[in-house]
Design a binder for these strands. Structure first.
Lengths: 169, 169
DNA sequence: TAAGATTGACGCGTCAATCTTA
DNA sequence: TAAGATTGACGCGTCAATCTTA
């Protein structure tokens, strides 16, 4: 018995609604962020991830893994952020091939200023719109999908310890 | 009483899981599509939207609205697709300023071939992983979020009649 | 003057090639 | 030889400027 060629009406409505929510929500959050700060979403992710590192510095590889970015995307983006003084690059003591990315003072200030605004935006458009029950349901859905997407072994989902801190969302 | 500075642990877990699902699911679907066909996600969206139009042709503005694309994004992308022979542009009879985008024969063949594969991919990674109850819950969540995102008047959500046909997802 | 649409410049992400050290 | 990382070329999306017809 093969799969039907199309989705059922219910399935299609759900699929479309889900994708539309993603599109509009993401663009709204990006709009808020760029209006209220000097940071793009990717900038914000880099800075807030570095905030969670000890010494505010991480190996490029580790950072890329956390962000789920390719190494070349990271190198390009870090290059631009370095130009703007948000992060700095330094040689890696343990491994001569490696690089360490460090949050600069001005990067620290930028993320400190941006974080509460971004959290407020996430609350306003997303968190506050859903009951705790629904939010939990969404998390279950996401976990289920991720499980099948090969989340089992690697990546954030498989992290036994969650030591994240400071600038969270 | 102002909002707390951060999200609660529950909220943050849900928020992260939701975003991670989006990232991985979208990249998996894109990977499947480009592996199995000659089309990118945006190509697929353009072609399948045109399929839903009578005469397989739509005003550029209408097409852009359905896709929720900017007019310049549409113009650029249609230009590239025209080069590849997937669509054609023609003058608009009703309005000398307007343009009509038409699905070409080869575009029609491309979407016919791609659609079942794409639907299968969506089923495999998404639809089949969720019970009907959960899928309905997700649709409700999406609808709720969209409602607050200014979905009330315009856009797909406000469509009273859903006359979509043919190549659906 | 405004609406429909296109264009060019620029910033960003991907892919393949490359460089350096393990 | 492989791992860590960077680089350049290219394709795509955004923004502002522009062109044409209403």
């Amino acid at each position: 018995v093969s799969e039907p060629r199309w989705l059922s009406a219910d399935q299609e409505r759900a699929w479309r609604a889900y994708r539309r929510m993603n599109r509009l929500l993401y663009s709204q959050l990006a709009r808020d962020l760029t209006r209220e700060t000097e940071l793009s979403e990717p900038d914000y992710e880099v800075l807030s991830t570095l905030t969670e590192a000890k010494e505010h510095s991480w190996r490029a590889t580790t950072l890329a893994e956390h962000l789920q970015w390719s190494s070349s995307r990271l190198a390009h983006h870090i290059g631009r952020m370095e130009q703007r003084g948000l992060v700095s690059r330094e040689a890696c003591p343990e491994d001569g091939r490696g690089a360490r990315i460090r949050l600069s003072d001005s990067g620290w200030q930028a993320i400190q200023a941006a974080a509460p605004l971004h959290v407020a935006s996430v609350r306003r458009h997303f968190i506050n719109r859903l009951t705790p029950t629904r939010l939990a349901a969404l998390e279950e859905i996401a976990t289920t999908i991720l499980l099948y997407l090969g989340e089992s072994a690697a990546g954030d989902g498989g992290h036994p310890k969650n030591t994240r801190r400071s600038v969270k969302p």
